[in-house]
């Protein structure tokens, strides 16, 4: 014990540097440096003859107040919140439900279910977007046939302002439900059997066992799933881009921060890219996601650590 204590008290022993160096070097060179270099542009604006002039936080002010930018930004932010809410309310509960079924030792063929249900997660978003665009396509009529079974009238789901975003969110849920499922499953099967047995012996129902015993124990995973969902959703781009293109139609109904950023930074059709405002949007995305992650780290995770100690 003392040995390890002294090892840890040394200021920057060489082995810590060895452990950290490869990751930090590759990551800094290929991610942080290029990203910061571009993010810097959010503090500049093109001057009279096209050269960049330092303008401080002016671009951020424009993004949040100017009629040209603010409605698009807040529209994308609102859509992104809806996108996130649908994932939290649909994807994660379904993932938890499937994981709790799959963690039961009584279910035969668990491994097969697990493998099959995870399959959509490994498909490329381009493929998923393409497949669903075909299925939801009024021309092919698949969605009409299937919804007809349930007495629901078919709609041009991806073409209506009211339905496009919820439907695309559900497509994303369809694809990614495997991730929370796997994470919850890993947490559930690591719960010691004795705890559950003890509860059963006390006459607890399966429902009771789940909510009173299992759920509190997998709370750290619930937190990780929530924060991963948050980060993933606020950085999402590909699915909307594949199905609705960067125009994120109809009438920007599916525009999320990722598509708004892409459209602005790289341009679209005749609209040339606007690197400075694009970088400003990326800067706002960074602030939003960072705020979410810090909130998680400093409230949820800290409380969990305290609980651990009490246990």
């Amino acid at each position: 014990m003392q040995r390890s204590g002294t090892t840890r008290r040394k200021p920057f022993p060489i082995h810590i540097i060895v452990f950290l160096a490869p990751a930090v070097i590759i990551y800094t060179a290929f991610m942080i440096f290029p990203l910061l270099d571009s993010l810097r542009l959010s503090l500049y604006a093109p001057g009279e003859s096209g050269e960049y002039v330092f303008v401080g936080l002016n671009n951020y002010q424009r993004l949040l107040t100017e009629p040209l930018w603010a409605p698009r930004f807040f529209g994308a932010l609102k859509n992104n919140l809806v996108f996130f809410a649908i994932h939290m309310l649909v994807q994660n509960p379904i993932g938890l439900f499937l994981a709790s079924l799959l963690s039961s030792q009584f279910i035969k063929g668990r491994a097969i279910y697990r493998t099959l249900i995870f399959t959509p997660t490994v498909l490329s978003v381009v493929l998923v977007g393409f497949i669903w665009r075909l299925i939801l396509n009024p021309l092919w009529g698949i969605s009409g046939d299937i919804l007809g079974l349930f007495g629901i009238e078919n709609q041009p789901w991806l073409g209506l302002e009211t339905t496009a975003l919820p439907v695309l969110s559900l497509v994303s849920v369809w694809q990614y439900v495997g991730i929370p499922m796997m994470l919850f499953l890993a947490a559930l099967i690591s719960i010691p059997d004795e705890l559950i047995e003890a509860a059963r012996v006390d006459g607890a129902t399966a429902w009771h066992v789940f909510w009173k015993i299992k759920f509190p124990l997998i709370l750290p995973t619930v937190g990780i799933v929530a924060v991963l969902t948050f980060v993933g959703n606020f950085n999402a781009f590909d699915l909307i881009y594949t199905t609705q293109r960067a125009t994120a139609g109809p009438n920007f109904a599916t525009d999320i921060l990722g598509t708004f950023f892409y459209r602005t930074f790289f341009g679209i059709q005749l609209q040339p890219g606007n690197p400075t405002m694009g970088a400003t949007i990326a800067g706002m995305m960074l602030l939003i996601i960072l705020a979410g992650v810090l909130l998680y780290l400093f409230t949820f995770q800290r409380r969990l650590l305290k609980m651990d100690i009490q246990l």
């Binding site: 950290l20 990751a23 930090v24 990551y27 060179a29 290929f30 991610m31 942080i32 440096f33 290029p34 990203l35 270099d37 571009s38 993010l39 980060v231 950085n235 781009f237 990722g258 950023f261 892409y262 930074f265 790289f266 694009g278 970088a279 990326a282 995305m285 960074l286 996601i289 960072l290 992650v293 780290l297």
Partner: peptide
């Protein structure tokens, strides 16, 4: 350092395209 190493997932990586290409 932990937070620094997590920064990368908080911005769209396409933002750094030109910088990465130059490197």
């Amino acid at each position: 350092l932990g937070l620094y190493l997590a920064l990368g997932i908080m911005v769209p990586i396409r933002l750094g395209t030109v910088g990465i290409l130059r490197l």
